[in-house]
């Protein structure tokens, strides 16, 4: 009966629970604060230039990038955009078939130990830092390309594309594998019961069912390639140039920021235009990630 008096009183544990809830909520909301903070701070540094000085037509339309020219600086990112696009495009050309193929092999064909080891290997490959990839492009791929194709320069779209492809592939593989794993086994069993062979099951049943997840994996790979910095900085040859072939050197948007930010004075036009590129990169990757997420979420809900 004595307990009855205290019945329905909020006690210390109740308040502790509420306090913890508030505390972990701060952790949760911090991610939102950080992403907004990132956008606000890069905008703050780049917006003045974007509004006052920058001619958007020149920015996106001109291939001339000479921001440090004292008399007549030029701020065209067309060539940089072409550099990023060509390297990312080539990388995807390499990474998409191979990573989807590997994912299908791991998820649908490999068994037991083989599967375990492949997964571990893929995970370890995904962990190699981008600066190491850049170094590989610089020191191993570069002479290899020069020798194999008999070209004067090996730091080219081809080099960076291959490097970026190898870099993006493990991540795409594991996301694609997740997508394949998400297809319920009863689909496979149903198809097998009808007498379909393994590959028929995969092509006619599993792939169509997983196509959204696979598309999401590809998109995330594109986002990753688009935003990669160190590897493309070191492997592209860093020449402002709209490439005519895969043997041309180029320069990427991300690499431009990495290479030039250190030389600029805080607040200068050059400094600000690099932040403007940052805003552009942020928005594009945000869109890519959002789309990928919506697509992947779409399959989970249906």
């Amino acid at each position: 009966m004595s307990r009855n008096h205290a019945f329905d009183q909020r006690n210390l544990d109740w308040y502790i629970d509420k306090a913890v809830q508030a505390l972990v909520f701060i952790g949760g909301i911090s991610a939102v604060i950080f992403i907004i903070g990132i956008f606000l701070f890069i905008t703050k540094e780049g917006i003045g230039f974007l509004i006052n000085t920058l001619d958007l037509q020149e920015f996106f339309g001109s291939p001339y990038w000479e921001p440090s020219d004292e008399d007549a600086p030029e701020y065209g990112i067309l060539a940089l955009l072409a550099g990023t696009a060509s390297v990312t495009g080539l990388a995807m050309l390499i990474a998409i078939p191979f990573s989807l193929g590997t994912a299908i092999y791991i998820a649908e064909f490999a068994t037991g130990k083989t599967r375990e080891w492949l997964k571990i290997l893929v995970e370890l490959l995904a962990a190699i830092p981008s600066v190491v990839w850049g170094f590989i492009g610089l020191t191993i791929m570069n002479p290899l390309i020069i020798e194999l194709f008999d070209v004067p320069v090996g730091l080219t779209v081809l080099n960076a594309g291959i490097i970026l492809g190898l870099m993006a592939a493990p991540i795409m593989t594991s996301i694609a594998e997740d997508a394949l794993k998400a297809v319920p086994d009863r689909y496979r069993e149903a198809a097998e019961a009808l007498g379909a062979t393994r590959w028929q099951v995969v092509f006619k049943t599993v792939l169509p069912a997983a196509k959204n997840g696979l598309l999401g994996a590809v998109l995330l790979g594109v986002g990753r390639g688009f935003g990669e910095t160190m590897a493309v900085l070191m492997a592209t040859g860093h020449a402002v140039n709209i490439p005519g072939s895969v043997f041309d050197s180029v320069r990427a948007l991300t690499a431009t920021i990495a290479a030039e930010l250190g030389e600029t004075a805080v607040g200068s036009d050059h400094y600000q235009v690099l932040f403007t590129i940052g805003i552009f990169l942020f928005l594009i990757t945000f869109l890519i990630n959002l789309t990928a997420d919506l697509i992947v979420r779409g399959i989970r809900n249906s």
């Binding site: 329905d8 009183q9 006690n11 109740w14 629970d17």
Partner: peptide, 18 residues
Amino acid sequence: FNGQDVRKLRNIYALRSR
């Protein structure tokens, strides 16, 4: 429960512990 509506309780944990 003991004359109190369980859906209007301030401390649901106290209810469950009983």
